[in-house]
Amino acid sequence: MPEGDTVWRAARDLQAALAGAELTRTDFRVPRFATTDLSGRVVEGVASRGKHLLIRIAPGPGDDEGWTVHSHLKMEGLWHIYNRGERWRRPAFKARAVLETVSRQAVGFELGILRVLPRSGEDEAVGYLGPDLLGPDWDPAEALRRLEAVPERPVGLALLDQRNLAGIGNVYRCELCFLVGVHPLTPVRDVPDLPRLVDLSKRLLEANKSRSRRITTGLAGRDPLWVYNREKRGCLRCGTRVVHELVGDNELELRDLYYCPRCQPPPDLGEAASGAGTLEG
């Protein structure tokens, strides 16, 4: 499941393959940008912003400013890098973007969002995001302030909201709540040590950003996660059956939630599971 660490690696690999090279062909396979042609322009660089990916392209003849290819992987998306002429490892009908240079080819498959924006449009696309856990703008005090701004919101929903801190997805929110011993539906105001949770979020993503396999247990073998997707195997710490629920701010935003009822005893919630606000990706 793509989260901030996955997108960070994608940006790193695309940067190595494309930065400084001239595009010889571009192909955007979404109706709105199907006729957009950025060939002849140079890729200036690639950056991740939370779970968003920004490929920045220099101005070309007649352009007033540069361009940004903005993508979000959502649930199934990914970018592949190939040598020119190399066979794709995914079906061509799943490709949404193709960026070619003289020697390389970057292909975005099943991208949840794909847009080609003037450089000035970047802020509109990602400016709402909170501090990026893996970015140069990381600011733990600001992330803490944003989380605390809605104290009644369940912490498991607040962590997923990219307006608070950018880069946490479903796996990390479940594992983080487990690691600090907090039930994910605990209101933010009742989390015993919220600064520790923010600090652990940063450290966990940093530890995993260069790994091909996400690990939260310190065990690189068959048990890399404590509770996520372990409803049939039990909590890795105590063996208690892991609870799996669908929780969200509304019926359209339900997402998988995993927790250990023994290691993370539930608070007296009432209707707290409904949260406050909406999730932003």
Rank of each mutant, 00 (worst) to 15 (best):
R9E: 11
Q15D: 15
A16N: 07
T26V: 07
T26A: 00
R29K: 13
R29A: 06
V30L: 05
P31E: 13
F33S: 15
A34G: 05
T36E: 10
D37T: 04
D37N: 14
G40V: 04
E44I: 07
H52F: 09
L53V: 03
I55Y: 04
R56A: 04
G60Q: 06
D64S: 11
H70P: 08
E76R: 11
L78S: 10
L78D: 00
N83W: 06
R96A: 14
A97L: 09
E100N: 07
R104M: 07
A106H: 01
V107T: 08
F109P: 14
E110P: 02
V116I: 13
L117N: 13
A125K: 10
Y128N: 05
G130I: 10
D132K: 12
G135Y: 05
P136T: 12
W138K: 07
E142C: 01
L144T: 02
P151H: 14
R153E: 12
P154K: 09
P154C: 03
A158I: 09
R163A: 13
N164I: 08
N170D: 14
Y172F: 11
L179W: 13
G181N: 05
V182N: 04
P184R: 02
L185A: 07
P187I: 05
V188A: 03
V188R: 08
D190P: 04
V198P: 03
V198Q: 03
D199Y: 00
D199A: 15
D199Q: 13
K202P: 01
R203P: 04
A207M: 06
S210H: 12
S212F: 09
T217C: 07
D223F: 00
P224W: 00
P224K: 11
L225K: 04
Y228G: 12
K232R: 15
C238S: 11
G239C: 06
R241W: 03
R241G: 04
E245Y: 12
D249K: 01
D256R: 07
D256M: 00
L257R: 09
P261T: 05
L269C: 00
L269F: 02
A272I: 05
A272F: 00
S274N: 10
G275M: 12
T278K: 13
G281L: 09
